[in-house]
Computed example of a mutant assay.
Amino acid sequence: MKVVYVTTIMSGHGHGHHDHGCSCEGSHEPAERGVEYGLYQRIDLDKMQCLNESRDGDGRLVFKPWDQRKDRDKYVESDADEELLFNIPFTGSVKLKGVIISGEDDGSHPAEIRLYKNIPHMSFDDTGREPEQAFRLNRDPDAQLEYPTKIARFSNVQHLSIHISKNFGDENTRIYYIGLRGEFSEAHRHEVTICNYEAAANPADHKVESIIPQTNFIS
């Protein structure tokens, strides 16, 4: 399995992100950036699952608007160990182009993610299979690092599973934001076939055996 290392800022900056003291608050943020990360609106949240979350329902809180990516009030934290598994159904077809994972600047930040495509209701027992792509992460408290996907492998995604397999050393993992960048297509709807049923059958339209009843007259 090939693990991809990403060490560059993918938001218009030309420098690396190893210097955690770097402040990018004054840098220009393109307006379309938030639009690109709008796939969270295409998630079927009622059917989304997050396995090993410490509080039920917290997993869906990290899929939020771009301008809320640094919000620390909503987050998900793992329960029994450092692993988390997100099962993300979309309301149509997605071409996934990039992922952002943001947490604390400490040992609870995810250190590795594995992406799986179109495996609904995935469990931890299924994570032994080969993922479509895996990434080693850097700590990213400001949600600036994008991990670009191999688009050919993620061009027809109805369901995405994200496995957080390890963090930077803490017992539990905490995530504030997961950003998904890509294109969305509406699901194809099957046309309804309308059948017209005759109220009374027309013999001329049907091949039927002719049955001539015999009439018996009683004298």
Rank of each mutant, 00 (worst) to 15 (best):
E29T: 09
D125E: 15
K2R: 13
E82M: 09
A204E: 10
E82H: 09
G16Y: 02
T7Y: 10
Y176H: 04
I88K: 02
I43E: 00
I175V: 10
V208D: 09
Q133M: 06
H121V: 11
N52I: 00
T7A: 10
T91L: 13
N196I: 12
F154G: 00
S155I: 05
Y5R: 10
V4M: 14
G16K: 09
S165V: 03
E132T: 08
N118D: 15
R136W: 06
N118A: 04
H13S: 14
R181G: 00
P213A: 11
V76M: 02
R60K: 15
L180P: 00
A143Q: 01
I175D: 02
P30I: 01
S155T: 07
G21L: 07
G169K: 01
S161K: 01
A201H: 05
I175A: 01
H17R: 13
D126G: 08
I101P: 00
I43N: 01
H188W: 05
E191R: 13
G179L: 05
I100N: 04
I194H: 15
R153K: 14
E32R: 12
E198G: 11
L84A: 03
V35S: 06
P141F: 07
I101E: 01
V6F: 03
S123P: 02
P110A: 08
L39M: 08
F86Y: 14
T149A: 07
N202H: 08
C195I: 10
D71N: 14
R42K: 14
